Computed example of a mutant assay.
Amino acid sequence: MDRRKFLALAPLGAGALIAGRSALAAAPANKRERMLQWLAGKTDPNYTPAAFFLHFGPQYKTGSAAARRHMEYFRATDMDFVKIQFEQTYDRQPNLNTPADWANLKLQKLDFYEAQLQTVRDLVRDAKKDALILMTLYSPYMCAGHCATAPLLHKHLEENPEAVKRGMEILTESQMLFVRACIKAGVDGFYMSTQGSEAKQFSTPKVFANYVKPFDLVAMKEISSSCPFNILHVCDYNAPYSGYEATLDYPGQVVNCNPKLIGKQLALPEIAKMFKRPFMGGLDRHNLLAAATPQQLNEEVQRVVKSAPPQFILGADCTVAGDTDWKRLRQIIDAAHHSGQKA
Protein backbone atom coordinates (compact mmCIF):
# COMPACT_ATOMS: atom_id res chain seq x y z
CA MET A 1 0.00 0.00 0.00
CA ASP A 2 1.15 3.55 -0.70
CA ARG A 3 2.65 4.99 2.50
CA ARG A 4 0.54 8.18 2.33
CA LYS A 5 -2.68 6.14 2.02
CA PHE A 6 -1.57 3.96 4.93
CA LEU A 7 -0.99 6.98 7.15
CA ALA A 8 -4.39 8.42 6.18
CA LEU A 9 -6.15 5.17 7.13
CA ALA A 10 -4.05 4.25 10.15
CA PRO A 11 -4.97 5.27 13.69
CA LEU A 12 -2.87 7.92 15.40
CA GLY A 13 -0.95 5.26 17.30
CA ALA A 14 0.41 3.74 14.09
CA GLY A 15 1.57 7.11 12.80
CA ALA A 16 3.28 7.77 16.11
CA LEU A 17 4.96 4.36 15.90
CA ILE A 18 6.33 5.14 12.43
CA ALA A 19 7.56 8.53 13.62
CA GLY A 20 9.21 6.84 16.56
CA ARG A 21 10.97 4.38 14.27
CA SER A 22 12.20 7.24 12.10
CA ALA A 23 13.63 8.96 15.18
CA LEU A 24 15.24 5.71 16.27
CA ALA A 25 16.83 5.27 12.86
CA ALA A 26 18.34 8.76 13.16
CA ALA A 27 19.93 7.99 16.54
CA PRO A 28 23.75 7.73 16.54
CA ALA A 29 25.03 4.20 16.00
CA ASN A 30 27.97 4.54 18.40
CA LYS A 31 30.01 7.06 20.36
CA ARG A 32 32.00 8.07 17.30
CA GLU A 33 28.90 9.05 15.39
CA ARG A 34 27.39 10.73 18.45
CA MET A 35 30.44 12.93 19.00
CA LEU A 36 30.70 13.83 15.31
CA GLN A 37 27.06 14.95 15.46
CA TRP A 38 27.84 16.89 18.64
CA LEU A 39 30.79 18.63 16.96
CA ALA A 40 28.44 19.63 14.14
CA GLY A 41 26.19 21.30 16.71
CA LYS A 42 23.54 18.57 16.79
CA THR A 43 23.25 18.27 20.56
CA ASP A 44 20.90 15.83 22.27
CA PRO A 45 18.90 17.65 25.01
CA ASN A 46 18.73 14.45 27.03
CA TYR A 47 22.40 13.41 26.78
CA THR A 48 25.52 15.28 27.90
CA PRO A 49 28.86 13.81 26.72
CA ALA A 50 31.40 13.23 29.48
CA ALA A 51 35.03 12.14 29.87
CA PHE A 52 37.69 12.03 32.57
CA PHE A 53 41.39 11.32 32.21
CA LEU A 54 43.98 9.75 34.49
CA HIS A 55 47.47 8.26 34.35
CA PHE A 56 47.72 4.49 34.66
CA GLY A 57 50.34 2.51 36.58
CA PRO A 58 53.98 2.16 35.49
CA GLN A 59 53.28 -1.13 33.73
CA TYR A 60 50.69 0.60 31.50
CA LYS A 61 52.66 3.63 30.31
CA THR A 62 53.34 2.78 26.67
CA GLY A 63 53.04 0.09 24.02
CA SER A 64 50.29 -2.49 23.73
CA ALA A 65 49.92 -2.79 27.51
CA ALA A 66 48.96 0.88 27.64
CA ALA A 67 46.50 0.43 24.77
CA ARG A 68 44.78 -2.45 26.56
CA ARG A 69 44.53 -0.41 29.76
CA HIS A 70 43.06 2.55 27.88
CA MET A 71 40.41 0.26 26.37
CA GLU A 72 39.58 -1.24 29.77
CA TYR A 73 39.15 2.25 31.18
CA PHE A 74 37.11 3.47 28.21
CA ARG A 75 34.69 0.56 28.52
CA ALA A 76 34.51 0.64 32.32
CA THR A 77 33.69 4.35 32.51
CA ASP A 78 31.57 4.58 29.31
CA MET A 79 33.20 7.94 28.48
CA ASP A 80 32.43 9.40 25.07
CA PHE A 81 35.82 9.32 23.35
CA VAL A 82 39.27 7.79 23.84
CA LYS A 83 41.99 10.13 25.09
CA ILE A 84 45.51 8.69 25.08
CA GLN A 85 47.84 9.76 27.89
CA PHE A 86 51.24 11.00 26.73
CA GLU A 87 53.91 9.14 28.71
CA GLN A 88 57.01 9.47 26.49
CA THR A 89 58.31 12.47 28.41
CA TYR A 90 61.82 13.88 28.12
CA ASP A 91 64.39 12.94 30.73
CA ARG A 92 66.24 15.56 32.70
CA GLN A 93 69.19 16.93 30.68
CA PRO A 94 72.05 17.63 33.13
CA ASN A 95 73.94 19.79 30.65
CA LEU A 96 71.37 22.62 30.74
CA ASN A 97 73.15 24.86 33.21
CA THR A 98 73.05 28.19 31.36
CA PRO A 99 70.70 29.70 28.74
CA ALA A 100 73.37 29.11 26.07
CA ASP A 101 73.26 25.36 26.75
CA TRP A 102 69.80 25.08 25.15
CA ALA A 103 71.42 25.27 21.71
CA ASN A 104 72.96 21.85 22.40
CA LEU A 105 69.71 20.12 23.30
CA LYS A 106 69.48 16.69 21.65
CA LEU A 107 66.89 16.42 18.90
CA GLN A 108 64.72 13.39 19.67
CA LYS A 109 63.80 11.67 16.42
CA LEU A 110 60.84 9.46 15.62
CA ASP A 111 62.32 6.33 17.20
CA PHE A 112 62.16 8.07 20.58
CA TYR A 113 58.35 8.01 20.33
CA GLU A 114 57.97 4.46 19.03
CA ALA A 115 56.58 2.95 22.25
CA GLN A 116 53.99 5.73 22.43
CA LEU A 117 53.14 5.34 18.75
CA GLN A 118 52.52 1.62 19.30
CA THR A 119 49.84 2.61 21.83
CA VAL A 120 48.34 4.95 19.25
CA ARG A 121 48.29 2.34 16.48
CA ASP A 122 46.70 -0.29 18.72
CA LEU A 123 43.96 2.06 19.90
CA VAL A 124 43.19 3.29 16.39
CA ARG A 125 42.88 -0.35 15.30
CA ASP A 126 40.72 -1.40 18.24
CA ALA A 127 38.58 1.66 18.97
CA LYS A 128 38.35 4.04 16.02
CA LYS A 129 35.35 2.31 14.48
CA ASP A 130 33.38 3.06 17.65
CA ALA A 131 34.92 6.23 19.09
CA LEU A 132 36.97 9.30 18.29
CA ILE A 133 40.64 8.95 19.30
CA LEU A 134 42.57 11.90 20.77
CA MET A 135 46.28 11.99 21.60
CA THR A 136 47.59 14.12 24.46
CA LEU A 137 50.15 16.73 23.40
CA TYR A 138 52.34 18.66 25.82
CA SER A 139 53.57 22.01 24.57
CA PRO A 140 57.27 22.54 23.76
CA TYR A 141 57.45 24.77 26.84
CA MET A 142 56.15 21.93 29.02
CA CYS A 143 58.65 19.52 27.44
CA ALA A 144 61.43 22.04 28.10
CA GLY A 145 60.41 21.93 31.75
CA HIS A 146 60.92 18.17 31.72
CA CYS A 147 64.41 18.68 30.32
CA ALA A 148 65.55 21.31 32.79
CA THR A 149 62.94 21.41 35.60
CA ALA A 150 60.36 24.18 35.50
CA PRO A 151 62.23 26.57 37.88
CA LEU A 152 65.46 26.36 35.86
CA LEU A 153 63.62 26.87 32.56
CA HIS A 154 61.89 29.90 34.05
CA LYS A 155 65.21 31.31 35.27
CA HIS A 156 66.84 30.88 31.86
CA LEU A 157 63.91 32.48 30.03
CA GLU A 158 64.12 35.49 32.33
CA GLU A 159 67.89 35.77 31.91
CA ASN A 160 68.26 35.25 28.15
CA PRO A 161 65.14 34.14 26.25
CA GLU A 162 66.86 34.46 22.87
CA ALA A 163 69.36 31.78 23.89
CA VAL A 164 66.62 29.47 25.18
CA LYS A 165 64.73 29.98 21.91
CA ARG A 166 67.05 27.55 20.12
CA GLY A 167 66.07 24.80 22.51
CA MET A 168 62.39 25.55 21.94
CA GLU A 169 62.97 25.24 18.18
CA ILE A 170 64.60 21.82 18.65
CA LEU A 171 61.75 20.60 20.85
CA THR A 172 59.19 21.85 18.35
CA GLU A 173 60.94 20.09 15.48
CA SER A 174 60.86 16.84 17.45
CA GLN A 175 57.24 17.34 18.44
CA MET A 176 56.19 17.76 14.83
CA LEU A 177 57.67 14.36 13.96
CA PHE A 178 55.41 12.83 16.61
CA VAL A 179 52.33 14.85 15.66
CA ARG A 180 52.57 13.90 11.99
CA ALA A 181 53.13 10.25 12.86
CA CYS A 182 50.00 10.28 15.05
CA ILE A 183 47.95 11.86 12.28
CA LYS A 184 49.28 9.29 9.81
CA ALA A 185 48.35 6.52 12.26
CA GLY A 186 44.75 7.75 12.25
CA VAL A 187 44.06 9.81 15.37
CA ASP A 188 41.03 12.10 15.14
CA GLY A 189 42.64 14.91 17.08
CA PHE A 190 44.69 16.00 20.07
CA TYR A 191 44.21 17.17 23.63
CA MET A 192 46.57 20.15 23.31
CA SER A 193 48.03 21.39 26.60
CA THR A 194 49.52 24.81 27.18
CA GLN A 195 51.24 26.36 30.19
CA GLY A 196 53.23 29.54 30.72
CA SER A 197 50.55 32.24 30.84
CA GLU A 198 49.65 31.64 34.49
CA ALA A 199 49.50 34.62 36.83
CA LYS A 200 52.92 36.13 37.65
CA GLN A 201 54.69 33.38 35.73
CA PHE A 202 57.15 35.80 34.11
CA SER A 203 58.27 39.33 34.89
CA THR A 204 56.67 40.51 31.65
CA PRO A 205 53.95 38.97 29.43
CA LYS A 206 56.30 39.40 26.49
CA VAL A 207 58.23 36.28 27.52
CA PHE A 208 55.16 34.10 26.99
CA ALA A 209 54.07 36.02 23.88
CA ASN A 210 57.46 35.84 22.17
CA TYR A 211 59.11 32.65 23.45
CA VAL A 212 56.32 30.25 24.47
CA LYS A 213 53.22 30.96 22.43
CA PRO A 214 54.81 30.88 18.94
CA PHE A 215 56.08 27.33 19.61
CA ASP A 216 52.71 26.24 21.01
CA LEU A 217 51.05 27.31 17.79
CA VAL A 218 53.29 25.43 15.33
CA ALA A 219 51.78 22.04 16.13
CA MET A 220 48.37 23.40 17.06
CA LYS A 221 47.87 25.06 13.70
CA GLU A 222 48.86 21.96 11.74
CA ILE A 223 46.64 19.82 13.95
CA SER A 224 43.73 22.20 13.48
CA SER A 225 43.99 21.89 9.71
CA SER A 226 44.22 18.08 9.79
CA CYS A 227 41.96 16.80 12.58
CA PRO A 228 38.23 17.28 13.30
CA PHE A 229 38.27 17.05 17.11
CA ASN A 230 40.86 18.94 19.17
CA ILE A 231 40.61 20.10 22.77
CA LEU A 232 42.61 23.12 23.91
CA HIS A 233 43.62 22.48 27.52
CA VAL A 234 44.83 25.56 29.42
CA CYS A 235 46.59 23.74 32.24
CA ASP A 236 46.70 25.13 35.80
CA TYR A 237 48.58 22.15 37.26
CA ASN A 238 51.58 24.33 38.21
CA ALA A 239 49.90 27.62 39.06
CA PRO A 240 46.53 29.43 38.81
CA TYR A 241 45.52 32.02 36.22
CA SER A 242 44.25 35.56 36.61
CA GLY A 243 42.78 35.46 33.08
CA TYR A 244 42.88 33.55 29.79
CA GLU A 245 43.44 36.45 27.39
CA ALA A 246 46.80 35.10 26.19
CA THR A 247 45.26 31.88 24.87
CA LEU A 248 41.88 32.98 23.51
CA ASP A 249 43.11 32.78 19.90
CA TYR A 250 44.59 29.29 20.23
CA PRO A 251 43.07 26.65 17.91
CA GLY A 252 40.80 23.83 19.05
CA GLN A 253 37.15 22.88 18.63
CA VAL A 254 36.66 22.68 22.43
CA VAL A 255 38.31 24.40 25.40
CA ASN A 256 39.07 22.79 28.76
CA CYS A 257 40.23 25.01 31.62
CA ASN A 258 39.54 25.77 35.27
CA PRO A 259 36.60 28.16 35.82
CA LYS A 260 38.31 29.28 39.04
CA LEU A 261 40.66 32.22 38.48
CA ILE A 262 42.50 34.25 41.09
CA GLY A 263 39.77 36.21 42.85
CA LYS A 264 37.07 35.21 40.37
CA GLN A 265 34.86 32.28 39.36
CA LEU A 266 33.81 32.16 35.70
CA ALA A 267 30.38 30.86 34.71
CA LEU A 268 30.57 28.01 32.20
CA PRO A 269 28.69 29.92 29.44
CA GLU A 270 31.08 32.82 30.04
CA ILE A 271 34.06 30.60 29.21
CA ALA A 272 32.39 29.28 26.04
CA LYS A 273 31.61 32.84 24.95
CA MET A 274 35.11 34.05 25.77
CA PHE A 275 36.84 31.31 23.75
CA LYS A 276 34.10 31.23 21.08
CA ARG A 277 33.79 27.43 21.27
CA PRO A 278 32.19 24.72 23.43
CA PHE A 279 33.50 24.18 26.94
CA MET A 280 34.56 20.93 28.62
CA GLY A 281 34.81 20.66 32.40
CA GLY A 282 32.65 21.75 35.30
CA LEU A 283 33.98 19.46 38.06
CA ASP A 284 36.98 20.10 40.33
CA ARG A 285 39.66 17.43 39.82
CA HIS A 286 40.71 17.68 43.49
CA ASN A 287 37.29 16.58 44.71
CA LEU A 288 35.26 14.74 42.09
CA LEU A 289 32.63 14.15 44.75
CA ALA A 290 34.58 11.27 46.29
CA ALA A 291 32.36 10.99 49.37
CA ALA A 292 29.04 11.72 47.68
CA THR A 293 26.19 9.23 47.56
CA PRO A 294 24.82 8.21 44.13
CA GLN A 295 21.89 10.57 44.69
CA GLN A 296 24.20 13.46 45.59
CA LEU A 297 26.36 12.66 42.56
CA ASN A 298 23.36 12.83 40.28
CA GLU A 299 22.18 16.10 41.81
CA GLU A 300 25.61 17.73 41.41
CA VAL A 301 25.91 16.62 37.79
CA GLN A 302 22.40 17.94 37.12
CA ARG A 303 23.38 21.26 38.69
CA VAL A 304 26.53 21.60 36.56
CA VAL A 305 24.78 20.57 33.35
CA LYS A 306 21.94 22.99 34.02
CA SER A 307 24.45 25.83 34.44
CA ALA A 308 26.36 24.92 31.26
CA PRO A 309 25.82 26.09 27.67
CA PRO A 310 23.92 23.65 25.39
CA GLN A 311 27.06 22.37 23.62
CA PHE A 312 29.03 21.08 26.59
CA ILE A 313 31.16 18.10 27.71
CA LEU A 314 31.19 17.24 31.40
CA GLY A 315 34.68 16.64 32.75
CA ALA A 316 37.31 17.83 35.19
CA ASP A 317 39.59 20.85 34.86
CA CYS A 318 42.65 18.57 34.41
CA THR A 319 43.78 14.96 34.81
CA VAL A 320 42.30 13.34 37.92
CA ALA A 321 44.32 11.37 40.48
CA GLY A 322 45.50 7.98 39.26
CA ASP A 323 43.85 6.17 42.18
CA THR A 324 40.39 7.59 41.44
CA ASP A 325 37.72 4.88 41.62
CA TRP A 326 36.65 3.97 38.07
CA LYS A 327 33.19 3.03 39.38
CA ARG A 328 32.75 6.53 40.78
CA LEU A 329 33.71 8.03 37.40
CA ARG A 330 31.20 5.69 35.73
CA GLN A 331 28.48 6.97 38.08
CA ILE A 332 29.30 10.58 37.16
CA ILE A 333 29.36 9.81 33.44
CA ASP A 334 26.09 7.86 33.66
CA ALA A 335 24.50 10.83 35.41
CA ALA A 336 25.65 13.12 32.57
CA HIS A 337 24.33 10.72 29.93
CA HIS A 338 20.90 10.84 31.60
CA SER A 339 20.97 14.51 32.59
CA GLY A 340 18.14 15.70 30.34
CA GLN A 341 18.51 19.24 31.62
CA LYS A 342 18.61 21.11 28.32
CA ALA A 343 15.22 20.04 26.97
Rank of each mutant, 00 (worst) to 15 (best):
residue 1 M to V: 15
residue 1 M to C: 12
residue 6 F to R: 11
residue 11 P to H: 00
residue 11 P to D: 09
residue 14 A to V: 13
residue 16 A to P: 14
residue 16 A to Y: 03
residue 17 L to I: 03
residue 18 I to V: 15
residue 19 A to V: 11
residue 24 L to C: 05
residue 24 L to D: 13
residue 27 A to V: 03
residue 31 K to Y: 03
residue 31 K to S: 08
residue 33 E to L: 12
residue 33 E to G: 09
residue 36 L to W: 05
residue 38 W to I: 01
residue 41 G to Q: 05
residue 44 D to N: 12
residue 46 N to Y: 15
residue 50 A to F: 12
residue 50 A to Q: 07
residue 50 A to G: 14
residue 55 H to P: 07
residue 56 F to E: 05
residue 56 F to N: 03
residue 56 F to P: 13
residue 57 G to V: 05
residue 61 K to Y: 15
residue 65 A to R: 11
residue 67 A to Y: 15
residue 85 Q to C: 12
residue 92 R to K: 14
residue 101 D to F: 03
residue 103 A to Q: 12
residue 108 Q to F: 04
residue 115 A to W: 02
residue 134 L to A: 07
residue 137 L to E: 01
residue 143 C to I: 05
residue 143 C to K: 14
residue 147 C to L: 06
residue 149 T to F: 08
residue 154 H to W: 08
residue 154 H to E: 08
residue 157 L to S: 02
residue 165 K to I: 00
residue 168 M to N: 05
residue 169 E to M: 06
residue 176 M to I: 11
residue 180 R to S: 05
residue 192 M to F: 12
residue 203 S to R: 05
residue 208 F to P: 00
residue 208 F to S: 02
residue 210 N to G: 03
residue 212 V to D: 00
residue 214 P to F: 02
residue 216 D to K: 00
residue 216 D to P: 01
residue 217 L to F: 06
residue 218 V to R: 01
residue 219 A to G: 11
residue 220 M to R: 06
residue 224 S to L: 01
residue 229 F to E: 04
residue 229 F to T: 03
residue 230 N to C: 12
residue 236 D to R: 07
residue 238 N to W: 15
residue 238 N to G: 09
residue 239 A to H: 10
residue 246 A to I: 00
residue 247 T to M: 04
residue 248 L to M: 07
residue 250 Y to L: 01
residue 255 V to C: 06
residue 257 C to I: 04
residue 259 P to T: 00
residue 261 L to Y: 14
residue 267 A to M: 12
residue 267 A to E: 15
residue 270 E to K: 07
residue 271 I to M: 08
residue 275 F to G: 02
residue 278 P to V: 04
residue 280 M to L: 14
residue 281 G to D: 09
residue 287 N to Y: 14
residue 289 L to P: 09
residue 295 Q to V: 12
residue 296 Q to T: 14
residue 298 N to E: 14
residue 299 E to W: 13
residue 299 E to A: 11
residue 306 K to N: 08
residue 307 S to L: 10
residue 307 S to W: 00
residue 308 A to K: 05
residue 309 P to T: 00
residue 312 F to C: 01
residue 316 A to E: 02
residue 321 A to Y: 06
residue 321 A to E: 12
residue 322 G to V: 03
residue 324 T to E: 07
residue 330 R to H: 14
residue 332 I to N: 04
residue 333 I to Q: 04
residue 334 D to V: 02
residue 334 D to E: 13
residue 335 A to M: 12
residue 341 Q to K: 10
residue 342 K to H: 15
